[in-house]
Computed example of a mutant assay.
Amino acid sequence: MNSADLLERVRVKLWSTAVGPAIVIWFFGYVLVDIVAFLVNRSAPGMSLVASIPMLVLGVCQTEAIDMLRARMERFRWTVRASLLLLATLSATAVQALFDLYWTRYVALAFFPTWQTWALQITPQRISTAGVLNLWTFCLALTLLWAARASRSAEVNAARAAEAEAAAARAQSAALRLQLNPHFLFNTMNSISSLVALDRKSEAEEMMGRLCDFLRGSLNADPMADVPLCQEIDAIDAYLSIEATRFGERLEIDIDVAPDTVDAAVPSFILQPFVENAIKHGVSLVKGPAHVTVAAVREDRELVLTVTNSASFGDPAVPGHLPSRHSTGIGINNTRERLRNRYGVRGKLVAGPTNDGYRAAIRFPFTTCR
């Protein structure tokens, strides 16, 4: 270990206890004493400070002792704690004041004869002055130590709360994401069952193969990780190819992804519930042709993903089956929660009916996976 590392460890150790702050406070106090001594012509600059080193050490040690006493009394009632701390502080003040007076007297007799004219006079006024100054220093030191510890405790609690909140948000997002696969699986198995019932076995086998490919990619994906938009589009394309087998030429699919967005980072399967809704409400409930469009564009610093379905209605009553502006579908609600957990207020979802279908637009900050 080099000297720099050793000094850093000593610094961290000092400031993790009361020693570091106590040294600063007592040192500052005795610097003021040295300045006053120089201004009244009692000693040369720095001489009083050097002579005060033993008093500084005693003050730091007593401050540390009182702080340790305070820590050990956390389980006591506040009245008991206050009484004991007051008694300890007054006792430390008396010890510090007497030591100051008699240590200065010794230094004057042994090393600085010019100090004897004032240092040897231990009068009630000097005792009270020393007592007040030392009491003030103890109170200042203990108050600042209490404030520093309260601040550190608040920071630790805030960090723990933030970590717990982030963990809860991650868990919630993962749960919301994983709720989509059973929904899709149920719809797809119904489609396969319908194909088998209609004796379209080859198409059912093809759909089963595509379903296996889709689920393989889905189950291997981390539900909490962002993925490149191109990977998300591949998953949507795989899903739509499965549905295209069911609806045939009646389903028209258009995927329009701007070239500058293919590497954009998006929450995995963020589009899936809207594509499912487009099929469920825009294709399966109408008799005529239906059109599903998936688009991605970049607008300034945001990525905008849209899923739109439109259809030619063969029955005037069919539009009433379209999702309303107040849709409470699990996919839409889950997506709103995922956006809130991932982006806060910067993640937005606007969804609602159009003249001939339904449109959902997702907007969140643009970032890349590279």
Results as ranks from 00 to 15, higher is better:
V40P: 04
E302G: 00
L135E: 01
A296R: 05
R359M: 05
A311K: 05
Q272W: 01
Q121M: 09
P365C: 07
V10F: 10
A235F: 00
L198V: 06
A37H: 11
D34C: 03
V24P: 04
A175H: 10
P273F: 10
Y358E: 04
T123D: 06
W146R: 14
R216V: 08
A351Q: 10
P259V: 00
G209T: 11
W136P: 00
A88L: 01
S16C: 15
M208G: 03
L185Y: 00
S202T: 15
R149V: 08
W115A: 07
M73G: 01
G46K: 03
R346I: 05
R298T: 07
T293C: 12
I362P: 03
V307D: 02
A360W: 02
L285R: 15
T63Q: 02
G217W: 15
L339N: 05
V57T: 07
V156R: 14
W15D: 08
V286R: 04
F366P: 12
E299N: 08
A225I: 01
S128V: 07
M68G: 09
I122P: 12
I279Q: 01
G20K: 03
A296H: 02
A22D: 04
I330N: 07
I330L: 15
R11P: 00
A154Y: 06
R72W: 09
E299P: 06
L322K: 04
E232A: 06
S218Y: 14
Y239L: 15
T328H: 15
A197V: 14
R370Q: 12
V283I: 13
A94S: 14
I35M: 12
G282S: 08
A161P: 03
D300E: 14
P365G: 09
F313I: 02
G29T: 11
G131V: 10
E249D: 12
S312C: 11
V196H: 00
L322P: 13
A108E: 03
Q116Y: 02
T117E: 10
R363N: 05
V283L: 06
V33I: 07
D67G: 10
G320A: 14
A258Y: 04
L240N: 02
A265Q: 09
A154E: 11
L6E: 02
E337K: 15
E252S: 10
F99V: 08
F366E: 01
L144Q: 03
D5L: 13
V40K: 05
D222H: 10
R170F: 03
T354A: 03
A130I: 00
L185W: 01
I35K: 00
L49Q: 08
S173E: 01
S52Y: 09
T368D: 00
A197L: 14
M68C: 12
T261H: 08
E337W: 03
T367D: 11
S52K: 10
